[in-house]
Design a protein around this nucleic acid. Structure first.
Length: 439
RNA sequence: GCCCCCAUCGUCUAGCGGCCUAGGACACUGGCCUUUCACGCCAGCAGCACGGGUUCGAAUCCCGUUGGGGGUGCCA
């Protein structure tokens, strides 16, 4: 069970597609599970696809996901001789013929080409429905079929794991393989497509298919891997969120579900949130840094300072990009006010009274969150307000918003001086707003 | 048009002829907890597309219908 050899064979068409990432993952899982090898093969038979930056993107994305390969990547653009030899061989055996400068393979008029698919069972195509297809273009370059068949044979691939959109090329590749003199057939596993809300194949035009864009929003690689593994496969024990090693040990190609799977951003984020919560606070703060640095105020933030406040938002963060808007008031000179929330909260008669009372109490109180908590609680009591209600004006004065991290801890980190300043600023803002309201 | 694939809650899935009164997760709804939000906990909503077989027994096997998707390039 160990002489298995798989390959992930992307065409460099831009940023790595989610579907490609999932295919890479399943190949990797199958290889790891069986103790076999996985090689990376770049399908760049078309010169346009050979651009270094496109290929770099593939490496970068795979590297981020920590999907490792055995040996050096194979570039099809460097194997043209092999393909030429194959075509010449077919030509000399009259298995192929020249047509308009291109070479076409002779497909038998009768019979059928079939195979046993690991995820779909028997799949069969009538040969009469397959046209004589091009194996070498008029410009002398090999087509996908040729390169694919030659390489899978030459590289000793035992398991071909790829998307269902390639299921119809399989009979052609099988014919070519046989014409090459192969006596064996690799195992095939055609994975279900990942589809959008409209149940259509994820497309570059309509859908956000670039793996990179999820990375940029702050989806963690292990969470992405974990989620992707759940698209078309499920653990037998119903435990969905788990370490990759466990997934490897549970994974079987024959357990892959054949029907297409919708990409569900909500679920991805829910899983990512679990991974975020599981991080140790230090790692979380560090992971947040790149996102803070994208903010105008983020340059001020140093890791030490960030590490003190980051734990306050850790369990409130689904993707890392949600970090900065929750933390901005710690670093800004003045909070950014949500005007709608401000109006709503401050229209309460008690709002200015609470601000006044709190301000004078805060000049004296011992500066720790428990004392601040108790102070506001008792002030609220005077107005017969529960803490939840009494804290609202203070929260918006300090943070600019009606929701956010725990208030007393936040004020503690902000310091007495800043807190008093912000309360004063809020009182002034209240005064200047008022005439307009009552006029 | 032709070829191929697919069909369990809204979504991802478990289920491989009796253990199914169909399980879990996400989402959603209600409640508890609570300094907002969130976390956590509890509860709820919700599904085997349809029709024929086979069988003592079918979500599970077979056939058909319907629906959905993919492919149909000298792209990969």
């Amino acid at each position: 069970m160990s002489n298995t050899r798989l390959r992930f064979a992307p065409a460099p068409t831009g940023s790595l597609h989610l579907g490609s990432a999932r295919t890479a993952l399943f190949n990797w899982l199958a290889a790891r599970r069986s103790g076999g090898e996985l090689i990376l093969r770049i399908e760049d038979t078309n010169a346009e696809l050979s651009k270094p930056e496109l290929i770099d993107n593939i490496y970068r994305s795979l590297d981020w996901l920590q999907i490792e390969f055995d040996g050096e990547p194979v570039r099809q653009s460097e194997r043209t001789d092999l393909y030429n030899d194959a075509v010449e061989q077919w030509l000399s055996k009259d298995l192929a013929y020249v047509d308009d400068g291109a070479v076409r393979f002779r497909v038998p008029a009768e019979g059928a080409t079939s195979w046993h698919d690991l995820v779909r069972g028997n799949v069969s195509f009538e040969n009469e429905n397959i046209e004589d297809f091009v194996v070498r273009r008029a410009d002398g370059t090999a087509t996908f079929f040729t390169a694919n068949a030659v390489d899978d044979f030459d590289l000793g691939i035992t398991h071909v794991v790829r998307g269902e959109d390639l299921i119809n090329v399989t009979p052609k590749v099988l014919m070519l393989r046989q014409a090459l003199g192969a006596s064996d057939t690799p195992e095939f596993a055609h994975l279900p497509l990942i589809v959008n809300e409209q149940r259509k194949k994820l497309s570059k035009r309509r859908d956000d298919v670039a793996l990179e864009s999820y990375r940029e929003r702050g989806v963690l690689a292990p969470a992405m891997i974990n989620y992707l593994a759940l698209l078309g496969w499920g653990p037998p024990d119903d435990i969905e969120v788990r370490p990759i090693d466990e997934i490897i040990s549970l994974f079987e190609l024959t357990d892959v579900n054949p029907s297409s799977a919708m990409f569900d951003l909500k679920k991805l984020e829910a899983i990512n949130a679990e991974y975020v919560r599981a991080m140790n606070p230090k790692d979380f703060a560090n992971a947040l840094m790149p996102w803070l640095e994208q903010e105008s105020w983020g340059v001020v933030a140093d890791v030490e300072q960030l590490a003190t406040v980051a734990p306050l938002i850790q369990e409130r963060t689904k993707v890392l990009a949600e970090g900065p808007p929750q933390l901005d008031f710690f670093f800004l000179d003045d909070p950014e006010f949500d005007e709608a929330a401000w109006t709503k909260v401050m229209s309460l008669d008690e709002a200015p009274l609470i601000l006044d009372a709190v301000k004078s109490a805060f000049t004296e109180v011992e500066w720790d969150s428990a004392a601040l908590h108790e102070t506001l609680r008792s002030i609220g009591e005077q107005y017969e307000m529960k803490l939840g209600k009494a804290q609202a004006p203070l929260r918006i004065a300090i943070t600019g918003r009606s929701v956010g991290p725990p208030l007393f801890e936040s004020m503690y980190f902000l310091g007495r001086e800043t807190v008093l300043q912000r309360i004063t600023a809020a009182q002034q803002k209240l005064d200047t707003d008022k005439p307009r309201d009552s006029a």
